[in-house]
Amino acid sequence: MSRTTRLQDLIRELRHHTGPIGGPELAERLGITLRTLYQDVAALRAVGVEVVNTPGQGYVLSPDVVLPPAALAEPAPREPAELIFFTNPLSRGGIVHWMLEELGVSYRTVVLEYGTTMKSPDYLALNPMGKVPAIRHGDAVITEAAAICAYLADVFPTAGLAPPTADRADYYRWLFFAAGPLEAALGLGLLGVHPTPEQQVQLGCGDVWAVLDALSGAVAGRRYIAGDRFSAADVYVGSHLGWGMHFGTIPRRPEFEAYWAGLRDRPARARCEAFVEQALSPLA
């Protein structure tokens, strides 16, 4: 079914329904998923068709809405923007690599070396920090692994790696908890820095054991960290827990091991592991 047909059916269903109709019921009547319904409602609003969603009641369309036929026309096909992935096998680029493989989209990999190509003028023009990972998607440049994962989940929504906007509380919370407090606390420990209680007050990460306890509670008894589906948050949190337990920077708590066991054998991650092994084989 084309988007034009879906939008026309959506308007027709709203016009013929007396009073508000809930999202799940509306999606079922139209034979589409809730995610597609959210996207189609957003598409209508983008062309000036006000679809009102009242919390606890549902969607309603004003009876006097007139939609010009051109507003529902399919957009002209565009050349997809090139997606370039800058990485090094021994870096956090592995997180983004896993994310890209989960998306199943086409991308080009550029491997950079520490101290040389990673600090070249061309790459510094993209990322002044001279670090990886980074991506260039058309004219857009995104750095920082958590930001890249969130961006990719949003610009490739059909992969389903981000929950619906209304259900993203845990998704955002734990994705950026791992990028902030967890990384900072582990980094301090790796350097042998153990902040005093007074110094912990000044740090966003606080105490490393409090950080690990919070994350333990987040994954305990759960297959995925942000709802009942795999998401970009699992890519990011799972990567840190997997690597941390492997290298000994994160203790092997039962809840960490159980959560990681449900992620480590995903085919997309296996492809990333194969890439790393192949890239490092000449060094063996």
Score class of each variant (00 low, 15 high):
F85E: 11
K131M: 05
A214P: 02
A210H: 13
A184V: 12
S120D: 02
T109M: 14
I250A: 05
A261T: 05
R269V: 03
I84T: 14
H97V: 13
R229H: 02
A279F: 04
L126F: 09
A71M: 08
R108Y: 09
S62N: 12
A261L: 02
N88G: 07
N53Q: 13
G160H: 01
A179T: 06
Q39L: 08
L72T: 06
F156L: 09
L67C: 15
G262S: 10
S91T: 14
A125I: 07
A274H: 11
A184D: 13
T18K: 15
Q39R: 15
A76P: 00
Y151E: 12
A258F: 03
V219K: 01
D228K: 01
G160D: 04
G227P: 11
Y151A: 10
E257N: 04
Y172P: 06
L203F: 13
P128A: 14
T116N: 05
T18S: 15
V66P: 04
A185D: 15
I11Y: 00
A166D: 12
G58F: 03
P163F: 12
A147K: 05
R269M: 01
V237K: 02
R269L: 01
Y172G: 11
L67H: 08
F176G: 00
H17N: 13
T5A: 12
G217D: 01
A162Y: 00
E144D: 12
Y236C: 07
L30Q: 05
Q202A: 15
G189E: 12
P89A: 14
A233M: 07
A81K: 15
I225N: 01
G217T: 04
Q200T: 07
Y123R: 00
P80F: 14
A270P: 00
C205T: 09
A268W: 10
G242V: 05
I32N: 01
A226P: 01
V219Y: 02
S231K: 02
L186W: 10
H16R: 15
P267D: 10
H246C: 06
E82N: 06
A169N: 06
V41P: 00
G217F: 00
E144Y: 05
R78S: 10
L100Y: 02
V47P: 07
R253G: 04
H240P: 04
W174Q: 10
L72E: 08
R229S: 09
P68V: 01
A210F: 07
E198M: 13
A210S: 14
T158N: 10
T158K: 14
P20R: 11
A70I: 12
E257G: 09
T116A: 04
P77W: 03
R264W: 00
S91W: 12
I142W: 08
V132A: 01
Y172D: 11
P24V: 03
